Amino acid sequence: MPRGEARWAWLLSDGGEPRNWMLVLAPLLGRHDGGWSGIGWGVFAALFTAVLPTLILRFGERRRYWGDRHVRRRQDRVVAAPGVLASVVTGTALLYGLDAPAEVTALVTAMLAVLLALLVITFFWKVSVHSAVASGALAVLTSVFGPWMFVLTPLVALIGWSRIRLRCHSTCQVTVGALIGAAVGAPVFGLLR
């Protein structure tokens, strides 16, 4: 791969990480649904869906439970999943228990549903979490802010391209990830919103 192309692929892959989507999306939806106080709820949600999972993945990487923060090997993902899921489940329960804004709790619950679907598949096959979260985020944004959010579709496609170009996933794994993110995330969010 040409050096410039590799640089862009890494930038898109790192920028399109699932945690980054949640760091932006949770406070944004919190603001939309709960005003300025909703931003705090969004930050609280991001703590359990982005910050703590990142710390868990870094801890596992340092302890050599898996190879890197992207947890590229399918078998390693099964090992990493319980810690990440525990964080998201705890956050979800706290958001519901503390009566957080509906769009924030719906977002986190939709993320949890997508993660569970991905985990089931991961027992048999590797699928792109980057693509699942990006397409799920686009579906949620479209649901909340309207169809003009489809202008972000090329970004979702570019994130998928980066994962393929970096040889982290096949085209099929990226496509299935994107389909799951939208097909699971959007209805769960819409139902709970």
Rank of each mutant, 00 (worst) to 15 (best):
P2T: 10
R3T: 10
R3H: 10
G4D: 14
G4F: 08
A6K: 15
R7T: 13
W8A: 06
L11A: 15
S13W: 00
S13E: 05
D14V: 07
D14S: 10
G15N: 12
G16E: 00
M22L: 15
L25R: 10
L28F: 02
L28Y: 04
L28I: 04
L29M: 11
R31D: 04
W36T: 15
S37G: 15
S37H: 13
G38L: 03
W41Y: 09
G42P: 05
V43M: 13
V43C: 11
F44P: 00
A45I: 02
F48Y: 06
A50Y: 00
V51H: 04
L52E: 05
L52G: 04
T54L: 15
F59M: 11
G60A: 10
G60V: 01
E61R: 15
R62I: 04
R62H: 14
R64Y: 07
W66M: 14
W66P: 14
D68T: 10
V71C: 14
R72D: 13
R74V: 03
D76A: 13
D76E: 15
R77Q: 11
V78Q: 11
V79S: 03
A80H: 04
A80G: 08
A80W: 00
A80M: 08
A81N: 08
P82D: 13
G83Q: 09
G83I: 07
A86C: 14
V88N: 07
T90N: 12
T90W: 00
T92L: 06
A93N: 11
L94G: 13
G97L: 12
A100K: 11
P101W: 05
P101L: 04
P101E: 07
P101R: 08
A102L: 12
T105G: 09
T105L: 06
A106F: 00
A106I: 02
L107Y: 03
V108R: 08
T109Y: 05
T109E: 10
T109P: 07
L112V: 11
V114E: 04
V114R: 04
L116W: 07
A117N: 10
L118C: 03
L118V: 01
I121T: 13
T122K: 06
T122C: 06
F124N: 12
F124A: 15
F124Q: 10
S128D: 01
V129F: 05
H130G: 09
S131M: 06
S131C: 12
A132S: 13
A132D: 02
V133A: 14
V133Q: 09
A137N: 08
L138R: 05
A139T: 03
A139W: 00
V140L: 02
L141H: 02
L141V: 04
S143C: 11
V144G: 05
G146H: 09
P147G: 12
W148M: 10
M149C: 07
L152C: 07
L152N: 03
T153M: 13
P154V: 05
I159D: 00
G160M: 01
W161D: 11
W161R: 14
L166C: 07
L166K: 14
C168M: 14
C168K: 15
H169G: 08
C172W: 09
C172Q: 13
Q173K: 12
T175K: 08
V176L: 14
A178L: 05
L179T: 12
A182M: 05
A183G: 13
G185Y: 00
P187E: 09
V188H: 01
F189I: 02
G190C: 02
L192S: 05
